[in-house]
Amino acid sequence: MRTESQLRGSTSVVGVAEAGLGEVGPDVSALQIAGEASLEAIADAGLKPSDIDAVFCHSAFFTFPATTLSEYLGLQPRYVDTTATGGSSFVAHLRHATAAINAGMAEVALIAYGSNQRSHSGGLATSGANLVPSYEAPFGPRLPVSGYALAAARHMHEFGTTRKDFAEIAVAARKWAKLHPHAFTRDDLAIDDVLGARMVSTPLSVRDCCLVTDGAGAVVVTTTERARDLQQAIVPILSVAEAARHMNISTTPDLTTTAAAESGPRAFELAGLKPSDVDVVEVYDAFTINTLLFLEDLGFCAKGEGGSFVADGGIAPGGRLPVNTNGGGLSYTHPGMYGIFLIVEAVRQLRGEAGDRQVADAHVGLVHGNGGVLSSQVTALLGDASTL
């Protein structure tokens, strides 16, 4: 039986696609665009739908997600997984697919997501009533943003971080988005625009918050051995690590340190890499505080130094570290859960297919998914053929 470290590079991403980005309108379902992205990703890999024997899917817009998507596409998988950890689910699915493939339970896995949250009911949707009593509700938080605002306020209190530091993150994301022809928001954005924007939950303004869009994404994973015979350059999965510390933000032991401080080091150890080896970073940026916390917790800078790290365009095009190179959830797209799009962008960067936003000599990409209110953290390291 192989250890997890021995799974390094045993599987690869061989196909990626997106569909329905932006606003699809009231007559287009989440399942439809998830299906479109899935078929495009399968074609991108040079495979046929009949090659898929495992389906991984999570959605708030259709029940039994993996089974429903399989039926819609005419698939009959022998392995399905609907692991639901919010926006981090799809990064976790990379790990679960790798495990299933190495156990001989599947050979080709489809990971997919679709949401029409912008077009559906004015952008409001739910996967059902909360059946667990909430001890936060009596205080009237505007969740999830108020939970992230607590973390931002505490970081400012402990480390002297400023709203301008958060604004740097929003502006950097917009600069990357301006290089992407399909980004939802591409107009100019300055520091003062973020600072002067409508406050949503102090200290986060509307420009510190992610977009509300429609969109779908899909990823195809198979053995690296088989991947070498397919049409795309291989993108090996070097490691994936998961960690969870709380569900409700009121129970977190530390507002300024997330479980990424656990998933990140484990992922680096499994891959035999360190933060300085990473060429491109894709982190879940539902709010500007996310990016700052994850850069610290993943080891790109020390705790409390995130503000200085992102200052003066530190993570913008031409900065010290390329972060969220498609514009992220802040400016590219954010259809409820963003994790699948992190993977898609990292793969395109590692294949050298990112056009004007392409990072030179990108060999190692880090993908970090977040779910809930800083609840679930999943870190993956992807590479190109040189990393094997």
Rank of each mutant, 00 (worst) to 15 (best):
Q117Y: 05
G114S: 01
G86L: 01
L39E: 09
G104C: 02
G86D: 11
D187N: 09
L330I: 11
T256V: 10
T83Y: 11
L75H: 03
A151W: 04
T185C: 02
H93W: 00
A362Q: 15
T202Y: 09
S134F: 01
S146C: 05
V132Q: 07
P144T: 06
G20N: 08
V344E: 15
V344H: 01
M156K: 06
A41N: 07
V171K: 13
R228Q: 14
R198S: 11
V212L: 14
F64Q: 13
G318W: 06
A316H: 05
N326V: 03
L69C: 07
G307L: 11
D44H: 13
L47E: 13
A259I: 03
L73D: 14
T185D: 14
G336D: 14
V219R: 05
E168S: 06
H58A: 08
T67I: 03
L211E: 13
Y332K: 12
L31T: 10
L292G: 01
D277V: 07
D187Y: 05
I111A: 05
V280R: 13
D384Y: 11
Q349K: 12
F90H: 14
A99L: 05
N102F: 00
G352E: 12
E136N: 08
S59N: 11
P322W: 10
G114L: 05
E282M: 12
Y148T: 08
G319N: 12
T202G: 03
S12K: 10
T252W: 00
S201C: 15
G329T: 08
Q349F: 00
N130R: 12
A183L: 01
E71P: 01
E345C: 06
H120D: 09
D297L: 02
A45D: 06
G22R: 09
I52C: 06
A385K: 13
F166V: 01
T161G: 08
G336V: 14
N116C: 13
I289Q: 05
I52S: 13
I315R: 00
I191M: 15
I340W: 01
S38E: 14
A137V: 06
G355R: 07
N116I: 11
S119T: 15
G160I: 08
S38V: 10
F268M: 08
Y148M: 03
P141H: 12
D361V: 01
K164S: 10
